[in-house]
Design a protein around this nucleic acid. Structure first.
Lengths: 162, 162
DNA sequence: AAAATTAGTTATGTCAATTAACCATTAATT
DNA sequence: AATTAATGGTTAATTGACATAACTAATTTT
């Protein structure tokens, strides 16, 4: 058990901003998981802030993108795609529907289920949101050049596609 | 609004495992933020599983590592380092103290504050935990070779140290 | 020595997310 | 064809994370 650090010693090693993640670790900072968590938090916060302009959360944006690529999919499928539980899909879709960004359409063959589609408005907004997300990406990784960004994306994909 | 996909079409594009993150996206998957979130989730889940053996959560492990590097630090400093609010530190430290991994020691000069230290047991366990975390890192990024892992860590640090 | 600050704690409220129970509809079994 | 079982979606209730505010004890300021 080492000697106690004085409050001044510690203070100096700690970040000034309370809501930013701390830069004081050593040992932790050789872990990919640790670095990944902090980088992810930064990107996520950035995106949350930008989407707030449109009163949307990242999950709603993701949902719209998935619906766009799988028009007519069912809610259970959307839940799986978002890695959330079916009950969570309900308020999410309610929100999108209330803003006329998406619609639930009763299925002809199976009258229990709905096909989910984006409205024209939803498609148009999605286009905007994609641009916002791309900009958020670049902004939050402004320390990287374009080649590094490519490489980072490649490595991340390799990690999660596995 | 495109033609509805049949349930079979959609099903085929969706992941079989319900609790794994979904691999179906396109458009989203050119976003670093999206790839980062999914990779981070994978690493985090892996670590959670491994630490569960010792009945610890990632935040508790991080706390121990930080205490180890700043012996005698105060709770407010620890809160800042973990980017959590002071009230959250209380149950966290209670848990570590109840398992005799860390101790709160009343400060000589300022009897309001505590210096926080790892016990010998805590130091020994931390050593083990670091090995576990390093192994978790490698395991969850097994698709990468060692050079790629280095590069990924470098890029992630560059992103969050900014 | 009275007032204002600070470290830690407790208490409270909010919000996300999981689980269990429920209704309507479809499929399976006999 | 009639009962049973299973499925899609929803609602309700539980849990847990987390932040905020209020409180105690000790220190500093004036």
């Amino acid at each position: 058990m080492a000697k106690p650090a004085t409050p001044a010693d510690v203070q100096e090693a700690l970040p000034a901003t309370p809501d930013a993640q701390a830069p004081l670790d050593t040992a932790l900072d050789e872990l990919i998981g640790y670095a990944m968590r902090r980088a992810q938090l930064k990107l996520f916060q950035n995106l949350i802030g930008r989407l707030a302009t449109h009163d949307l959360r990242p999950a709603q944006f993701s949902a719209m993108a998935i619906i766009d690529q799988h028009p007519g999919l069912m809610q259970a499928d959307l839940a799986r795609a978002l890695a959330i539980e079916p009950p969570q899909v309900v308020p999410l879709l309610n929100k999108l529907e209330s803003r006329a960004l998406a619609v639930r359409v009763r299925c002809k063959p199976d009258k229990r289920s709905y096909g989910i589609f984006l409205s024209k408005t939803g498609e148009a907004l999605l286009k905007e949101l994609k641009a916002i997300a791309a900009q958020s990406d670049i902004d939050a990784t402004s320390a990287l050049d374009s080649a590094e960004r490519e490489e980072l994306l490649r490595l991340l994909k390799k990690v999660y596609q596995n």
